[in-house]
């Protein structure tokens, strides 16, 4: 197991290097520089700015010095926010987005797994259709529709919850978490229903039932473990997706999180910020995928066996 983890971590290094190189080249190919503005910027100013940010050097030199900074853990200064470093910006946005993603994940798992398991117990009956349709509502309503609707109902009409912000007013975290989470609830519901159906038709469940175990024990003790494998495999990428994909929700609710930085940096051509967030998310994605694989192995003893056999 340890060797498996180590080898995956080693594999991550070339992955990250390729990501950095490709992104580095991509952002510089995109039309429009970080300093272009509606009012023409005089050439002297452009030259001064390029000199300050080393953009006047040949590109390979910029690339090498960027890698050098990166090796020291420095993402460099943001172009868009001259007084801030990318490290500072990420450090400011990460806790917020992570918290949002965590709550959203809780919402998604709670709704998704419950709906999926209940539905799988009696396939093709109302007990299947009702929870699944309810879970589907989230997927059938994009967050840019769900968010404003929730705000309208709970923020404006009922006046129960604040309409925007994060950690400013009591209860302002509820609507964003629900908006972000429900989109993923349907995925989890589908996956857990599919996984449960798969497992419930397998021989060991029949054996368990034949032994006369109560249905509750069969489901909770035996079926859930195998039935949730697809869900667990999905959680890693999903959490990374929640972190980087919270853009819409963060925009609707004015939340100063990473998801917004990520998208806005691209539009602002804030080179260092694009690279910084990309490297950061790439690392996260690699780690979460690894984590998902480890958990999958841990849940499924058969695969653990394979793993030790194949190495």
């Amino acid at each position: 197991m340890l060797r498996f983890i180590l080898s995956r971590l080693l594999q991550a290094i070339p992955v990250l290097l390729v990501v950095i190189t490709a992104t580095f080249l991509l952002v510089r190919c995109a039309p429009g520089g970080p300093f272009s503005a509606e009012k023409a910027v005089p050439p002297e100013v452009v030259r001064a700015l390029e000199a300050q940010y080393r953009l006047d050097q040949p590109i390979w030199q910029q690339y090498l010095s960027y890698l050098g900074d990166l090796a020291r853990g420095e993402f460099g200064p943001s172009f868009r926010y001259p007084g801030r470093t990318v490290n500072e910006l990420i450090a400011g946005g990460l806790p917020i987005t992570a918290e949002l993603a965590f709550y959203a994940m809780l919402v998604a798992i709670l709704i998704g797994v419950c709906a999926g398991v209940i539905a799988a117990l009696r396939p093709n009956t109302p007990q299947d259709y009702l929870p699944m349709s309810a879970a589907m509502l989230g997927i059938c309503m994009p967050s840019f529709l769900m968010g404003p609707l929730l705000v309208l109902v709970f923020g404006i009409w009922l006046e129960w919850l604040p309409v925007s912000g994060w950690g400013e007013l009591a209860g302002d975290k509820i609507l964003p978490a629900i908006t972000l989470g429900t989109g993923y609830a349907a995925y989890i519901a589908r996956l857990s229903r599919g996984g449960m159906l798969e497992v419930m038709s397998q021989d060991y469940i029949r054996t368990a039932r034949a032994k006369g175990l109560p249905e509750r024990v069969v489901v909770l003790k035996h079926a859930l473990r195998g039935g949730l494998i697809p869900v667990v495999a999905f959680l890693g990428p999903a959490f990374a997706g929640l972190l980087s994909g919270s853009f819409v929700v963060e925009t609707i609710f004015q939340i100063p999180g990473l998801g917004r930085f990520y998208v806005q940096a691209a539009f602002n051509r804030d080179y260092t910020m694009i690279l910084g967030t990309t490297v950061f998310f790439a690392t996260l994605i690699v780690l979460f995928n690894l984590l998902a694989d480890i958990i999958a192995v841990w849940i499924n003893p058969k695969m653990r066996h394979q793993l030790s056999r194949s190495r």
């Binding site: 798992i109 709670l110 797994v113 129960w160 009591a170 509820i174």
Partner: peptide, 24 residues
């Protein structure tokens, strides 16, 4: 499923903490 229990408990808790009404 201890995890599920934990998750639902923490969700309810956080909802309670968050939903103490809108102040001034």
């Amino acid at each position: 499923m201890p995890f599920l229990k934990m998750a639902s408990a923490s969700l309810l808790l956080s909802l309670l903490v968050m939903a103490c009404g809108q102040g001034e």
